[in-house]
Structures are given as C-alpha cells and as structure tokens.
Simulated assay, not measured.
Amino acid sequence: MTDTAVFNEMLAKIESGQGFIAALDQSGGSTPKALKGYGIEDGAWNNDEEMFALIHGMRSRIVTSPCFNGDKVIGAILFERTMDGEAGGKPVPALLWERGVVPFLKVDKGLEDEAYGVQLMKPMPGLGDLLDRAKALGIFGTKMRSVINSASESGIAAIVKQQFEVAGEILDHGLIPIIEPEVNIKSDTRGECDAILNAELKKALDALPEGRRVMLKLSLPEHAGLFADLVAHPAVVRVVALSGGFSRAEACVELARNPGVIASFSRALLNDLKHQMSDEEFDASLGGAIDEIHAASVA
C-alpha cells in the first residue's frame, strides 16, 4: 500500500528528480514486435502465456540491471502483467521503489478506430478495481494513450475531454494520471496538431479543481519550446516526451531543445538490447542508453 509519506516521497522524486521515465509497458498487440526487437522471433512461443513469459523475462532483466536505478531513471511505466509479476524475487513495483524508481501502470485498453482524425481510447471496464489493486501494490500513477493523426479541432478536443474525464477517476483513487495524447510525428499537419493540442490542454488544465494535478506525456513538438506554458502550469506535475518513431539520437536532440521536458522513451531506450547478449553486454548497452537519455532530459 502506498501510504501518504511514501506517496509524497514519490511525488517529490517525479516533480524534481533529475532523470527520465522508462516506458516498459508494451501490451498484447505490441509484444511480438518488442520481442522481435529483442532478438526473439515469432514462433519462439506457442501461446500468449509463453509470449508474455518471454517479455517478462526481458523486463525483469532490465529492472534488475545494476544501471536501472533512481540515479538516472526516476520512474517506470509497467504493463499490468509486469505489475503483477516478480523480478529479483520481489513484486516488481516494490523492487522498483527499493531502487528509487517510481512505478506507474498503463491502464488503457488500446485505441478505437480513427474518426475525425484521431483515435480515442477504448472503454476501460473494471478500471476502478484495477486502480485499487495498483494502489495496494505500491503504484504511484497511471498512463493512458490516445493518438492524433491530423489537425482536427473537434477530434483533438474529444481526445482531451476523454483523457481528463478518465484522469478524474484516477485522481479519485489517489493516483497521479499521465495523460498521453500522442501526435503522430509523420502527420502532414504535425505543427497544427501540436498547436491545437497545446491550446486544448491549457483549457483543460485551467478547469481542473484547485489541488488536482496531472502529468502530460506528449510527442516532441515540431516547434521547440511550444509546451513551455504546460511545463510551468501549476496543475502539471511534469511534462514527459515519447520518442514517437524518432531514433534515440534524434529523440535526444529534439528533447534537449525543449527545456523542462524529460524523456519517457520505450523503443528508443530498449532498441539495442538483445536476448543473446551476455549480462555484461546487456548492462553496458542499457547503461549507455540510460546515460544518453538522461543527459538529454537534464540538458
């Protein structure tokens, strides 16, 4: 259970920690792709249970690596099965916090089909029960993702509305929500999408009751510094950025151009890790990626 003192300690770490948040939350649909990137080909498993066991092995190797600690990694976003699992003989959220890494949980159930240029989140039946379970396991906050593909004012407004409605339920359960309305960086109207989203987020943040605070996970904007007002907003605990299809080197360059924004990378963090590596090779590769992303986050 996350008591008030621990919650406040975690909040302070996320609010002012000099580091970044690792995204280890690939779910069912993206797991085969993540395993392939890790050097495990399709056909290495016979069913979903075996597939999830393989991805849990990868995540366990990451979170138990000596370099994966709160010195540079201030938080980690987990998939539900990872939250429920163990690493190093301990429940994963407890292991993370013991290492100074604040645990978050991905709570969305994936995306609806595109309409009005965006993909809203699918319904989340049983969210309340999941949030109660997460809190009991020591989870600090949550993450949920929507996608913006084109500069539709009505579509982007609908995404922000849905995100903040669900965020309200998460806050009611004593957890801090990460709101992630991802702008597709390949969109022909990327800059316009960024601008509309920025305006909608400001309106939604201004409307939050006093004392209610959220986090934002955003695509790196086409125009550097666009999100400065969001970074400074009193209702925002922290603004983090996804790599969104950029290589790690590209994402780090873009990130460093946006003061106050820190990384929350997934693929750009894990891309070079391979199942076949020795522990020394694995730790060296992960440590190098952590150093590079940390440097861009504190630039």
Rank of each mutant, 00 (worst) to 15 (best):
A228Y: 00
S243C: 05
M215C: 13
F227E: 06
N271R: 13
E222K: 09
V231C: 03
A268W: 15
D229G: 07
A228N: 08
L255I: 08
L270F: 15
P234L: 08
V237M: 06
A289M: 08
D272C: 12
A232R: 03
F246V: 00
S247N: 04
R238Y: 07
G287H: 03
A228E: 12
I262S: 15
R238T: 02
R213V: 05
S219M: 08
V237K: 08
L242G: 13
L255C: 10
A224E: 07
K217H: 04
L208P: 01
A235K: 11
R267V: 12
F246L: 04
R213F: 04
D291K: 00
E254R: 15
P259R: 00
V236T: 10
L216C: 05
L230H: 06
A251V: 11
P259W: 12
V240F: 11
V231H: 04
A249S: 12
L270V: 11
L218H: 10
E254K: 15
D279N: 15
A284W: 04
A241I: 02
G288K: 01
L286Q: 09
E250Y: 08
A289H: 03
V261R: 02
Q276Y: 02
K217N: 05
A284D: 09
P221R: 05
A224P: 15
M277Y: 08
V214S: 13
G287C: 01
A289I: 09
P259L: 00
R248Q: 14
D229P: 03
F282V: 06
E254V: 02
D272T: 14
G288M: 00
A224L: 05
E222I: 07
G244R: 06
I262W: 12
L205F: 11
A224Q: 06
P259F: 10
A207R: 08
S266M: 12
F227Y: 14
E280H: 04
L255S: 09
P221T: 01
A256L: 09
G287T: 01
G225S: 03
S278F: 14
A268F: 14
G287F: 00
A235L: 04
G260K: 00
V236L: 10
G260H: 06
D272L: 12
L230T: 01
K217E: 06
E210P: 00
G244F: 04
S266H: 13
A224C: 06
F265V: 09
R248H: 11
A256P: 13
L269V: 06
V240N: 02
G288C: 00
M215Q: 12
N258V: 05
S264L: 10
G244E: 03
E250V: 05
F265H: 13
A251N: 13
